[in-house]
Design a protein around this nucleic acid. Structure first.
Lengths: 261, 261
DNA sequence: GCCTCCGAATAACCCAAGTTATTTTTGCAG
DNA sequence: CTGCAAAAATAACTTGGGTTATTCGGAGGC
């Protein structure tokens, strides 16, 4: 595999132009790839935590099981995401992680992150930016779950996936694959699977979202974003000013030669 | 003011022993204390974001206003907390912040954080640990809002405040001051103020929680934690192993370059 | 002292979403 | 192709919590 194909390099490049050295550092996180199967659980709540992993291919989700037998899906991970950051400061896993698709993941130890802190301010800042954005997404989800109707929640979820997928893949129109069962969607959105089904039916009647098995088609993405009150400020904000400054300093004032677009 | 009184230094020391240099770096963040009044808004959504602040005295909350006129309270800040980390990667505020009590806060610019990344791996790691723990708390709240009944939500909220206050103040029995109106509680828990009132009535009838204006008394804290399914693992985890390792490396002067195998 | 205002308590009514159950569709093993 | 199991659709019924309205009570202004 070539560095240019590394999805973690691609993801980080969205935030900031990277030097060759930075790319190598990142690329090093993606050694020791492991094949995993759909449905396979990477770890469970309360397992010992001393590693992160990046997901190179396939989707995964993290979840918490609750006392009453239900569960909450906390996050959907896509290729390029780093899994397990939540537990950086903890010795136990606080949520389980299960693969949705067959895929490839790469484990690396917590200490590797410290190496990055030591050797690249740029990557440190990008990591912080990613953590910050993660928190913002989580907050947005919290608002979504706490305040909005089932209709809006599902609209919001679909639109968020659409935006996230658009960052790495090119989406032909509003079409994308969503390999989640209605039960899993319910677990993610705090709804029953029955009501997910009802809500999809409503979308279909209104011609807002079409669905065939795991293919989703957003007929009118902007309208969907509107009904979901989707706040896209945090997706489109420019990170360049801050990071170009870092680079400038790190390179001792050289003009950036690395552009990733 | 003396370094020992700095609430940031105190907060960070909880995670890791700090060198004198680190303390100075941190101390520099707390230079311009400002008096603020109860009800005063520090900033609103969409304001320009280029500063964080620490809260030295008083309580505050962050919130988002929604399209339908309701709002969601995202976080309650207590003395020692850093406010505004959410927006590190953004140029706009994504949530407003308002004081609950009279208090004192200290602003410092975003770029100051970059200085820290450049000059102290220890502080960088602690910042990361704080961000990580923040995310865990946020996740727990998300589960609370998505999956639990009003009764459990309020129980969870009260118990969380009880635990947080116990970290800095000593709580005589289960008594503490909770300077939030029922409307604010509702906004934090995704419930109507009417239902908050109903739920407090239920608590009273059961003798589980007593309330008089803004004084709360948890009659049986453990039982309350149980009904809320409160997960206290993440409050008591030890952070030392990781950080003692960092210190070792930094003090041994051993510049450990990253292996790119 | 009295008046006003805001927060809280309580009741009556309503609806979004949960639950349970039944049927239909899809995927897949043999 | 057949049979089986899991996922999805739909309907009937229930319920937790929202909404609206009214009353009550304490804190502050004058």
């Amino acid at each position: 595999m070539d560095q240019q194909d590394s999805c973690i390099v691609r993801l980080f490049s969205n935030y900031c132009a990277l030097s060759e050295k930075d790319k190598e550092l990142l690329f090093a996180l993606e050694q020791s790839p492991t094949e995993v199967r759909a449905g396979e659980t990477l770890w469970k709540e309360c397992d010992r935590a001393s590693e992160f992993c990046t997901i190179r291919r396939g989707w995964a989700y993290s979840y918490r099981n609750l006392g009453d037998g239900s569960r909450q899906i906390l996050e959907i991970y896509l290729p390029g995401d780093i899994i397990g950051m939540r537990e950086f400061a903890f010795s136990q896993r606080l949520s389980g992680v299960t693969m949705i698709d067959d895929g490839v993941i790469c484990y690396f130890p917590h200490r590797r992150l410290l190496d990055i802190f030591r050797s690249s301010t740029t990557l440190t800042a990008v990591l912080f930016a990613i953590a910050s954005r993660h928190q913002v997404l989580l907050t947005e989800r919290l608002v979504n779950l706490a305040r909005r109707s089932a209709y809006q929640r599902l609209a919001h979820f679909l639109y968020e996936m659409y935006e996230r997928l658009g960052q790495t893949d090119s989406l032909s129109d509003g079409h994308f694959r969503l390999p989640l069962s209605q039960e899993q969607l319910g677990d993610a959105l705090g709804l029953s699977s029955v009501h997910i089904s009802r809500t999809f039916s409503t979308f279909r009647e209104e011609g807002l979202v079409l669905r065939e098995r795991h293919r989703i088609c957003l007929v009118d993405p902007l309208k969907l974003a509107a009904v979901a009150e989707f706040d896209s400020r945090y997706l489109n904000d420019s990170l360049r000013p801050l990071f170009s400054d870092i680079e400038f300093k790190e390179r001792g004032g050289e003009v950036n030669e690395v552009r990733t677009e």
